[in-house]
Design a protein around this nucleic acid. Structure first.
Lengths: 343, 343
DNA sequence: GATTAGCACTCAACCTTGACGAGTGCTAAC
DNA sequence: GTTAGCACTCGTCAAGGTTGAGTGCTAATC
């Protein structure tokens, strides 16, 4: 099986080189840089086979070959060379998690920023809070005007959501305080999806409580209730890649980055996988043909799911990207668990 | 003064045309499209004068002329033709403010989005909350772990900030509840900048209160405490302009949009002006040479300052942009005042 | 005196052409 | 099975020519 082995070694060399240069790679390049024992003619024969097998495309006669999606798939699944991160890179990542996190939303921003400056790709950090699993830890109402109330819902893990409620009748600040303490005690520990049922059971106890409950029930489900936060960083990195020197392509991609729905669908994994690599057409979106999306997801102890994703051209440095994502993911879960853990 | 009048009419025509086409405009174009009474030769003479006066630049011989920054300045200050917004546009703007605002931060996002789809420029919405003027309306602490507490500060107007405090000693949830009610009552109505002084005066009343106060004092000032939120929309619009078909320029500009500090300095007015138009070098930033920034600022009743800004090439549709900004600004202040007003 | 027509001149944009080089496929020799 | 050699393809680049839009100047006209 030395035969087959060599074929794939050559394919790997081609992919490696193309990832580095973004230029179609020719037989001579491989012969000189990667397989010095073999002449370019031999490589040529092998490349011809590889093209037949569907791993290589030729943009036209005499322009070298370019890896196909199938090749990248194989590369990611079986050929990744796990060259470890440099000391500087590891240090850089650790430094991001050193400082204390005071503002909750700052963390995502900081991760997005450092990931994109580390990898030179575009980064998205999404925190998804499935309604059904979020456990209410505290609830508080604050008067804004005489019929308007700011409802603050804190879930286990310390994430905060706020909504404005409209009451039928005015309510005095002090009463509101009592009501909100009552409700908070009653509802603590139930999941957000149980809320409507719980509220219904509480009904009829007290006029003020009733009023608040009515307001909470009338509150329309927010469309994006599922997605707590989406932060995108390193957009300008996109324009460094020669594949986006075509302004129209770049524009289409930028526009995807601006559409929350599209980003959510790009970043969402199926199943429980930690990592997901989607290559070119596997992203399932016309605008991202030619892109790859690598994501890592972590389930936090409060039920929220954190997804970190990188978007770049298909000739992505998959090895490095996966290592970096793994490292960041580990640090992140450690940090968050440490923060919630000793509860 | 018919002489001078005609000169400026021609200048205006040149600017109008250049804003529309982004192409250097020649004497013939003006003669045909704008001043049919005059021959191209006459226009040529006038244009030669205008160049001498510093209002026009010629990229090279025989390429038509391009307005200088000085010309845009004059144009904005004195030549704006206030063609009113179309019915569709007004309706579009109004529609953005129709729906109820439940999520507070959604409003900025929605404004940014609609402004950029209306004008095709890039939009930034910044809410600046000067510490000194924000009045505390409510304070609430929620246990996260046994020594960690989520401090929620609500200011008048309904904006919410949260910070995690680290306590020296554990505190029971019920005690925390009492302490936070006590503090909330004590501190209500004072401005955020008065907080340290107020806290100092309260010291020594009670062991638990003391502990909380110590934690609040140790909380480092967040660097961006001044800027509550910055939302940018319509980035992809940038790439539609021929001036950014040069990828490097586009990249530099995108990168400015990603740097919070730079955006804050771009969006900050001096003084109390409602509108500000900064043209090319007036933006005071190397990367935005060739751009104009138009901003509108509104002081909200709770002391926060809301700034809406548009960024685009210097040949911006100033007239339209100012009208749109005005309209949006008016709707926005009305909405916000309505929301806080009847307190 | 202001306006216009005419003309020479300039210069970017565009197209064509030809040389160059990188790459392939095939064949024959090792 | 591997390699050397050769003919062929095709994109890239630079050089040269053409075109067209635009200017400045001058002389004629209103």
């Amino acid at each position: 099986m030395d035969r087959i082995d060599r074929k794939y070694r050559i394919l790997q060399a081609i992919i490696d080189d193309y990832i580095l240069t973004a230029l179609p790679v020719g037989s001579r390049t491989i012969s000189r840089k990667y397989e010095q024992k073999l002449s370019s003619a031999t490589i040529r024969n092998e490349m011809s086979d590889l093209e037949e097998l569907g791993y290589l495309d030729s943009p036209h006669t005499s322009a070298g070959r370019v890896p196909s999606y199938k090749a990248y798939r194989l590369y990611v699944d079986q050929m990744l060379t796990p060259a470890p991160l440099s000391v500087e890179e590891t240090a850089f990542i650790n430094r991001c998690f050193e400082r204390r996190i005071h503002q909750v939303e700052d963390l995502s921003t900081r991760i997005a920023r450092s990931l994109s400056s580390l990898t030179h790709y575009t980064t998205a950090v999404m925190t998804r809070a499935p309604r059904s699993e979020q456990i209410l830890s505290h609830l508080q109402m604050v008067p804004v005007s005489d019929r308007r109330v700011l409802l603050i819902v804190v879930t286990q893990g310390g994430s905060v959501r706020q909504t404005i409620l409209e009451l039928d009748a005015p309510i005095a600040p002090d009463e509101l305080y009592t009501v909100s303490r009552f409700l908070s005690n009653q509802l603590e520990g139930c999941t957000l999806s149980e809320l409507p049922a719980m509220l219904a059971r509480l009904g009829g106890t007290q006029a003020q409580v009733d009023a608040v409950i009515r307001a909470m029930e009338s509150k329309p489900e927010e469309e994006h209730s599922d997605v707590a936060a989406l932060v995108v960083g390193g957009r300008s990195n996109l324009l460094s890649f020669p594949e986006y020197s075509d302004v129209d392509k770049a524009k289409a991609l930028l526009s995807v980055l601006e559409t929350k729905e599209k980003m959510v669908s790009l970043l969402s994994h199926d199943g429980e996988m930690e990592f997901s690599v989607r290559i070119g057409p596997e992203t399932g979106m016309e605008e991202t043909r030619g892109c790859s999306v690598v994501t890592a997801s972590y389930r936090l102890s409060d039920g929220r799911v954190n997804t970190i994703g990188l978007i770049g051209p298909t000739r992505m440095q998959y090895g490095k990207v996966l290592l970096v994502l793994g490292q960041v993911g580990r640090s992140l879960t450690r940090l968050l668990d440490e923060q919630n853990g000793q509860r």
